[in-house]
């Protein structure tokens, strides 16, 4: 079992997502430290993929910029090892099945274990396909994070029963990206999750503002934000880390104030 549960021990969790290598790894390192110092409880590190089918235009852009800069899975593992000298909060990877598969899934999990990456989120690996990686992930103590969507309905219990680390609740239909409104009844989804597991759950997709994060954290155990942070990197480039720190602080304050 990983250290992911620790992320949910300081009240409601705030979980930022950062694409590794956008615009370069030096900036990613600063962004991760800024997020950690300002209250991030867990950080999702994106390993870029050429064709990220679950992402909207903002995170697609981050993937393209990072790959154009020559980022590779090997460079990311070396980078995380370096980062781990002072960054102690739980980390998970978010990437696509082919990135893990082509690296050799056992080698991938072994390096996650070495570098202290406690889980992986693969948006193109549904419950039915998790055996692709589950045995090796278990062997190296890496949690395969399950996703639950607004369309999951009769599948929620089945997914929750076998969930590890935390459950990622996809707030809305469609791809990643900021939204003005979240219309899914998150409370109903969380109710079914709670009936089936004590694994914590956090809501992501579409959250950008403190009020939204507070609302989603009130309904669950935390809020996940990706595109809004990537937009800061898109806007400020190498100068983005202090803005990310400030943003993370405002979001952590918001989730902490959630009842």
């Amino acid at each position: 079992m990983s250290n992911i549960r620790d992320a949910f021990r300081n009240g409601k969790a705030f979980i930022p997502f950062i694409t590794c290598g956008d615009p370069d790894l030096e900036t990613t390192a600063k962004a991760v430290r800024a997020a950690a110092e300002n209250g991030a409880d867990l950080i999702e590190l994106g390993i870029p993929f050429s064709d990220p089918t679950a992402e909207g235009p903002v995170i697609q852009g981050a993937n393209i910029r990072a790959l154009a800069g020559g980022i590779t899975t090997d460079k990311i593992f070396d980078f995380v090892a370096e980062l781990r000298r002072d960054v102690k909060i739980p980390l998970v990877f978010m990437t696509y099945a082919n990135v893990v598969f082509s690296y050799d899934s056992e080698r991938f999990m072994a390096r996650c274990c070495e570098t202290g990456v406690g889980g992986i989120i693969l948006p193109d690996l549904p419950f039915e396909e998790k055996e692709e990686f589950s045995a090796v992930a278990k062997q190296y103590g890496v949690d395969l994070i399950s996703l639950i969507a607004p369309t999951s309905e009769n599948r929620i219990a089945m997914i929750a029963k076998e969930a590890e680390g935390f459950i990622y609740i996809v707030s809305s239909l469609g791809v990643t990206g900021t939204r003005t409104e979240i219309t899914t009844n998150i409370g109903d989804i969380v109710k079914v999750i709670r009936e089936n597991t004590d694994v914590p759950c956090a809501v992501g997709f579409g959250i950008s503002k403190p009020e939204q994060a507070q609302k989603m954290a009130a309904l669950s155990d935390g809020a996940i934000v990706g595109s809004a942070i990537i937009k800061l990197l898109e806007k400020y480039g190498k100068d983005a880390p202090p803005y990310i720190g400030e943003y993370v602080k405002s979001m952590k304050d918001a989730v902490m104030s959630a009842e």
Partner: peptide, 8 residues
């Protein structure tokens, strides 16, 4: 190998 959103 698709997002959970599409499984149903």
């Amino acid at each position: 190998y698709i997002p959970e959103t599409l499984m149903n």
